[in-house]
Amino acid sequence: MKHFLIKYRFKTGTREAWHEHIQQFIAWLDSEPDVKGKISYRCMKERDGDGYYHLAAASDEQAIKTLQSKDFFKRYTEESKRVAGGEVEVVPLELIAQTS
């Protein structure tokens, strides 16, 4: 598995519209045959702040490449940059240990 943390501060637009956009992206991940079951995605925000954190995991490099080729991913990436004022950080993570 390949893991990533995507983090940014929400700066532009309405939170409601952005949350709907995130939910739509996750629905596409769950329904798109080429990536269904190969990509895990979770979005969280600071309870009392503007920080957003997305945790993504892909089964392998091919799943990442397939996702990156999809139009819905390209639109989501652009919208992420827009709501973050152009400042989105993607951090590749290395798994050390986990629960069973």
Rank of each mutant, 00 (worst) to 15 (best):
H3N: 13
G86E: 01
T99L: 09
S80H: 02
A84E: 00
A56C: 11
A17Y: 04
G13S: 05
K81C: 13
D30S: 14
E78I: 05
Q98W: 00
G13N: 04
E61M: 07
G49V: 05
R82V: 03
T14L: 05
K36F: 00
H21K: 13
K74Y: 03
P92R: 04
A17V: 08
R47I: 08
T99H: 04
V35Q: 02
H19L: 14
Y53G: 07
E94P: 05
I22D: 04
E20H: 10
F25T: 03
K81A: 12
I22K: 13
D48W: 00
E78Y: 08
D48G: 02
G13I: 02
R82I: 08
G85S: 06
K45W: 06
Y76N: 13
Y52K: 02
G86H: 00
E78V: 06
F4S: 13
R42I: 13
K7I: 15
R82L: 08
A63S: 14
Q68D: 03
I6T: 13
V90K: 14
E32I: 01
Y41G: 12
S31G: 11
D71V: 13
H54M: 08
H19N: 12
Q23T: 11
F10Q: 08
H19W: 06
F4Q: 09
A58H: 08
Y8F: 14
H3Y: 14
A27F: 07
W18M: 07
S59D: 07
F73S: 10
K36M: 00
K45C: 10
V91E: 14
H3F: 14
K7F: 03
Q98A: 15
S100K: 12
R82D: 11
Y8T: 00
I64K: 05
F4T: 05
F10T: 11
F73K: 08
F73M: 08
G51D: 12
S31V: 03
S40Y: 07
R9S: 15
I6K: 04
D71S: 09
F4Y: 14
F72K: 02
E16M: 06
K38F: 07
V90T: 12
E89A: 08
K38Y: 10
